[in-house]
Amino acid sequence: MRKIFSIIAAAAIVGVSMSACSSTTQENTAEQAPTAIEQKAPPATTSAQPDTIKKSIPSQAEGTIGQAAITINYHAPGVRGRVIWGGLVPYDQVWVTGAHKATSVTFTKGVTIDGKEVAAGTYALFTIPGREEWTIILNKDFEQHLADDYDQKEDVLRVKVKPQALTQNQERLKYGIEGGTGTTGAITIRWEKLKVSLPVSTQR
């Protein structure tokens, strides 16, 4: 009888042990596997954040006027609460109109600016900001740092334009190519609360 009782007790202990192991395995599996809701839940959306990047961002503007494709490569600084005109950007001095290196503009076909023909090619774009009037410059030497090596003798043209006031702040410097009707358009520069436009036209 003692042998029979011992066998029954051992079997009972083994059964309890196996049940406990099975229960532990199920619990671990449940912890490791994500639920169906977790797998299908979409990522949370976030509202647009303000531009807080301190560095000037490498940027590019592209567009066409007539059959001329125009590409502008530049570094775009931000306002970041600073006084721009007459402060960070002095009046009546040649400005790279960007940051780090000369802003470049490439025309795939010849264009006409202020009545003067400009051949297809790549040029540096400088400006001389003024309180009432700006001078926009195209210069042959587009591979230079800022305006350190600027030489007026390399100018292709200089054009006087009037700045326009913007109703909203443009935090980061932005170039654009605006196509007009047919073969006319403009290269635009926006920053802070000012905009300047350089009229451009093509033969076709």
Rank of each mutant, 00 (worst) to 15 (best):
D114K: 11
G121R: 09
G130C: 07
I177R: 03
T35M: 05
K54V: 14
K109F: 04
K153M: 04
T64G: 03
N28T: 07
I4C: 02
I137E: 03
I84R: 04
W191M: 05
A61N: 09
E38L: 08
G86C: 09
P58V: 10
V94I: 15
L198V: 08
I70L: 06
T97P: 01
D92C: 07
K160Y: 01
D141L: 06
E27Y: 12
A9S: 12
Q26R: 14
S59E: 09
T184E: 11
W85R: 10
I128K: 13
V111D: 07
V118Q: 04
V159A: 00
V196N: 04
F5V: 08
E171P: 01
T25A: 14
L146T: 05
A61H: 09
Y150E: 05
I70S: 06
V196H: 04
G176A: 07
E27T: 09
F107T: 08
M1C: 02
T106S: 15
E154V: 01
T112P: 02
A41V: 07
L173Y: 00
T64I: 06
K195I: 05
I65E: 02
D148K: 06
A147H: 02
Y150M: 04
P58G: 08
E132I: 03
R131I: 13
S17A: 15
Q60N: 15
R158P: 02
G176T: 01
A124T: 01
P199Q: 10
K174Q: 09
R190K: 13
T97A: 15
G115T: 03
V94C: 10
I57G: 07
S17C: 11
R190Y: 02
A120F: 06
G81T: 12
Q32K: 13
G86F: 10
